[in-house]
Every structure is written in structure tokens, then in C-alpha cells.
Amino acid sequence: MMVVAMARLLRDGERVFHGVASPLPMIAILLAQRLHAPNLVYINITGGINALPETLPRTTVDPRLTHGSHVIFKLAEIFDMSARGDLDTAFLSGVQIDGAGRINMSVIGPYERPKVRLPGGAGSAAILPTARRTLLWRTRHDPRTFVEELAFVTAAGNVDRVVTPLCIFVKREGRLQLESIHPYSSAEEVRAQTGFKVETEGVPLTPAPTTEELAALHAIDPQSVRLIEFKG
């Protein structure tokens, strides 16, 4: 459901980027190209442009993601592209996400003496405010992940949607609002698992994956690389 929902958000002709630890965005981009966005320009963190990997790697920094590329980009050029306003869509994530769509990838607890020190923003503070839009995703949806107040704001900016295992949020008037609830979840579950207040009345169900979408997904990802993010 998540990878299909993410693919549906992508538009034909866009320049779309994903970074490290991004199996779901990787597969979603390839799925969108196959189904409805053949002119989408796929940019990955290895520097590949419109790569056609023969097999999907388990890590998104694998050199196989340069196979078939039109050209090879340096990572610094991705940030320059975003700063110029030429990057249409970026996929980012966060250990914590608040009701304003801001992300924390830095620390849990006081910054000077944190309970947990996280891996850091990895460029998200440069891309999130400058890409024309950002799609956030997180494979865990619970009150520790979707919080009222972040322990630390690593990045904030042009968030468009947030895709989770339970729902899709859309950012309107500076706040995340429910756009749809996945068909196997419920309004009660989303409210219980979200640490900030959400309005669920009248929110529709996310359309279930179609036969065509599922067939294309299995053709692109026969080894189920998409499930890696749900393990552990």
C-alpha cells in the first residue's frame, strides 16, 4: 500500500530524487515510471539519472543504481539543483515527524545530553526547504514517531505529503491533515497512533492497489526488496 501510494503522488515530467536508506522511494519511482509517468526523471544518491538497474539492490547506495544511466551526477550537484529550484520532488524521512511536517534526525532528549544520538540530517536541511515539494515517508506510525513536539528540529520546509503504514497526510495551512486512511486501518487506529491531534471525520479510504499496480510492482521488485524497511 505504501509504495503504491507513493508512486501515485509522482507526476510525469518531474525531476525526482531519493537519498540513502530509501528502498520504498526507489521502487515507487520505478513503479510510477512504468505506470503513469514515463517522462519522470529519476535521480538517485549514487548519481544515476534514469537508471535501469538489472536487479534491485538492498541498499540505495549500491553502484547498481547507476546502471543504464544517461549521465552520472555528483552529490553536490543535487544540492545545487535543489537550491536553484530545479528539483521538483524529493523523498525524505525522519525518526520523528511533528504536526507541522518538521523532522528530527538528530537527537532524542536534550541536545547537550541526549538519550539517543541519531544519524543526522544527511542533507535534509538543505533539500527540504529548497526542493519544490518533499514527500515524507515513515514505515512506523506510532505516538513516538508522530509527535506533538520534536526533541530537535533537523529540517523543515516544503512538505507536501506524508505516507505511513496507516494513512496519507497532506500539509495544509502549515499543519498535517489526514487526506486518506488505508483500507486495512481505521480512524480510531490513526487517532490512537498519532501523537498530535488529527481530524478523522469524513476522511476517505486510500484506494486499494489495483491489479495493474500490483502486477507492475511484482515485476519491478520480485525479490520484495520493499519489505526491508519493515524489518527490525
Rank of each mutant, 00 (worst) to 15 (best):
P63S: 01
L65G: 02
T66S: 11
H70D: 15
H70N: 10
K74V: 06
M81P: 01
S82C: 09
R84G: 08
G85F: 04
L87T: 04
L87M: 04
D88V: 03
T89M: 03
A90D: 14
A90T: 14
L92E: 08
G94W: 02
G94N: 00
I97G: 00
I97L: 08
G99S: 05
G101D: 12
N104Y: 06
S106N: 14
S106L: 12
S106W: 01
V107G: 07
I108K: 05
G109I: 09
P110V: 08
P110C: 06
E112C: 08
E112D: 15
K115M: 06
V116W: 11
V116A: 11
V116T: 11
R117M: 08
P119D: 13
P119K: 13
A122V: 07
A125N: 06
L128Y: 03
P129Q: 05
P129N: 05
R133E: 14
L136Q: 03
W137E: 06
T139F: 05
D142I: 09
D142N: 15
P143D: 09
P143R: 14
T145Q: 08
E149M: 12
E149H: 15
A151F: 02
A151I: 00
F152H: 12
A155T: 06
G157Y: 05
N158R: 15
V162Q: 04
